[in-house]
Simulated scan of single mutants.
Amino acid sequence: MAEEVRRVARVILLDPDDRILLLHGYEPDDPDVTWWFTPGGGVEGQETREEAALRELAEETGLTDVELGPLLWQRRCSFLFAGRRWDQEEWYYLARTARTDVALGELTELERRSVAGLRWWTSAELSAARETVYPTRLAELLRTLLDEGPPRTPLVLAP
Rank of each mutant, 00 (worst) to 15 (best):
A2Y: 10
E3A: 15
R6I: 13
R6C: 09
R6T: 08
R7E: 11
V8H: 03
D15I: 10
D18F: 09
R19G: 07
R19D: 07
L22S: 02
L23E: 02
G25Y: 04
E27N: 06
E27W: 04
D29Y: 08
P31G: 10
V33L: 13
W36P: 02
T38Y: 03
G41C: 04
G41N: 04
G42R: 04
G42M: 07
V43A: 01
G45M: 06
E47I: 01
E50G: 06
E50R: 13
E51V: 08
E51N: 10
E51W: 06
A52I: 01
A53Q: 01
L54D: 00
R55F: 00
E56T: 01
L57F: 01
A58P: 01
L63Y: 00
E67T: 10
E67F: 09
G69Y: 04
G69H: 05
W73C: 03
Q74P: 04
R75P: 03
C77Y: 13
C77Q: 11
C77S: 14
C77D: 15
F79D: 09
F81R: 06
A82W: 09
A82G: 13
G83R: 05
Q88K: 08
Q88P: 02
Q88L: 11
E89Y: 05
A95M: 03
R99A: 07
D101H: 12
L110Y: 10
L110Q: 14
E111L: 07
R113E: 12
V115F: 01
A116W: 13
G117C: 07
G117R: 08
L118N: 07
L118H: 07
R119N: 12
W120G: 11
W121R: 08
E125R: 15
E125W: 15
A129F: 12
A129Q: 14
E131I: 06
T132G: 09
V133G: 07
Y134K: 11
T136Q: 15
T136M: 12
T136V: 09
L138K: 05
A139G: 12
L141I: 11
L141Y: 12
L142W: 06
L145F: 03
L146H: 13
L146R: 09
G149T: 15
P150T: 12
P151K: 03
R152Q: 12
L155C: 11
V156D: 11
L157M: 11
L157P: 04
P159Q: 14
